[in-house]
Each structure stands twice: as C-alpha cells, then as structure tokens.
C-alpha cells in the first residue's frame, strides 16, 4: 500500500544528502596526494602512513581507548543497577532525588558537568589524569545505560521473574538466570552507548583531564583549531569506517536473529 510519493522521495534524498555529503567529502580528501585540502592532487594513502607515525595521536588514541574501556564497564554495571532500582526498587527514601539524578545528566550541558566535576576533583585534592576522566565518563554514561536498560525492564513481563522465584530461585539467582539474559540486549546496547559517548567526549574530558592524559578528541580539537589537515581527514575516515562497520554488523546480527526466529516459528507452526 505504501508507495514513495514524489514529495517523500525528494525529502529523503535531500535529507540524506545533507547528512552524508560532508562526511563523504572528508573521506574522499583523506586519499588526496596534495596537502592542500581543497585541491585534488591524485590518489594517495600517504596521510594514513603519516597518521600512524604520529606518536601524539597514537598516545591519545591509547588513552582514549583505556578510558572508554574502563568507564563503559563501570557505567554498564552502575547503570544496570540504577535501572533495576528505578524499575524494581519499590519505594525508598529519596527515590525522587535518585530518579532526578539519573535523568538530569542526560540534559545537563556538558560544560556544566565538566566544570562541576573539575571543581570537585580540585576541592578533594584529586590529581587530574586518566582516573578522573574515567570517573567523569562513568558518571554521565551510567545515566544513559540506566535509561536504555530501564526501558527494557519496564516492558518485560514480571511474572517470568516470579516464576523463577516460585521454582526455587533466590532473588539473586532469579536475576542472574532469568532477568539478566532477558535484558542482555539492552545491557549490551547500553554498554556500546557508554563506550561511544566516552570515545566521543571532548568537553567533559577537556575539563577533567590533566596534562598527563590527553584523549584523542582533545588532541583532534586542538589540531582542528589550526585548520583542516589531511591527517585529520585520514583519522576521520578510519573512525567513520569503524562506526559504519560496527553499526552495519550490529544491525545485520539483529536482522538475522529476527529472521531465524521467524523461520523457526514457521517451522514450528508447520510441524504443529
């Protein structure tokens, strides 16, 4: 019944052109021989070579990776706990404050989050570095994880948990054996979100990072301020490529799982 009208086709084409042309231009120019970023000087992959020899970028990438790894794990654990408390915690003292603190960081401007955490670290005398970035990232990422996981928790049938308890599970076993497998996809997407947010963050990191720890976005930001450079184009291309592969792989996995389930259902129906 649905057909693509002329209007819809136009708006989709223009819309996606707007979203993708700038990125495609960056990708194309990353293979440009010339250092001049607006003149095409022939195909070359030399900027990738230069990028991989740039110690400062490599160090920053390693720091970013470590921060992302640790902060996303902490955020996933805390965020899942937070979601569980929000959805299944029942009434407790300060519940409103708790849910406020889960939702507020989502809408808090990054400059304020960064500023406030920096002032905290200074006033308790914590040296700024990798550790403070991990703390900061884990804090705001956990709220995103909570929101993602709690939306799954809300929608799933609670009687499944009750059945587990009825069959002799302790509450913790019920969580580990029944609830966790059911919410696992949400926990994983929460973790991916936390990881992406951490890898992507510039503002908060530039507040709470000390001179000892520079993340990739901070490094990129300071070199972008000096103008467009072919190395940054190459770096952008690598990152865009990684995200594209990851997103497509994730969507194919879900699609395949859905297809398999549908096929199995059909077979079961035929068998029945």
């Amino acid at each position: 019944m649905r057909r693509l009208t002329w209007f819809n086709a136009t708006s989709l084409t223009l819309g996606f052109a707007f979203l993708y042309i700038p990125m495609i231009v960056v990708i194309i120019y990353s293979f440009n021989e010339s250092r001049l970023v607006t003149v095409w000087g022939g195909f070359s992959i030399k900027w990738y070579g230069e990028l991989l020899q740039n110690e400062a970028f490599l160090d920053a990438a390693w720091v970013t990776f470590k921060v992302g790894f640790f902060s996303s794990i902490i955020a996933t654990i805390l965020g899942t706990m937070g979601a569980y408390v929000l959805v299944r915690g029942g009434r407790f003292y300060g519940r409103t404050l708790f849910s406020g603190m889960i939702y507020a960081p989502l809408v808090m401007p990054e400059v304020i989050t960064g500023l406030s955490l920096l002032l905290l670290f200074i006033s308790i005398g914590l040296d700024r570095g990798l550790f403070t970035i991990v703390l900061a990232h884990a804090t705001f990422s956990m709220c995103y994880v909570s929101v993602v996981v709690s939306s799954r928790l809300v929608s799933f049938d609670r009687s499944v948990e009750e059945a587990a308890l009825d069959l002799g599970c302790t509450p913790f076993e019920a969580f580990r054996l029944v609830t966790l497998p059911i919410i696992a996809p949400a926990v994983i997407s929460g973790w991916l979100l936390a990881l992406t947010l951490s890898l992507d963050d510039l503002v908060i990191a530039s507040f709470v990072a000390g001179p000892s720890a520079t993340t990739l976005p901070i490094k990129v930001f300071s070199s972008i301020r000096l103008g467009v450079s072919p190395e940054i184009n190459a770096l952008s291309t690598i990152l865009i490529g990684l995200v594209t592969i990851g997103t497509i792989a994730a969507s194919l996995t879900t699609k395949r799982a859905v297809m398999r389930r549908r096929r199995e259902e059909q077979m079961a129906e035929q068998a029945g």
Binding site: L199, V243, T247
Partner: peptide
Amino acid sequence: ILPFWTSFLIRVYSLIGI
C-alpha cells in the same frame, strides 16, 4: 542512526572543509 554514532567532533570538522 549512523551519523549519531559517528564522532560529533568529526562531523563538525567535516563541515569546516565544506
């Protein structure tokens, strides 16, 4: 969703050249 997962900084950067 793809741009949404792509680095914010890189998307802003891609506009500079344009």
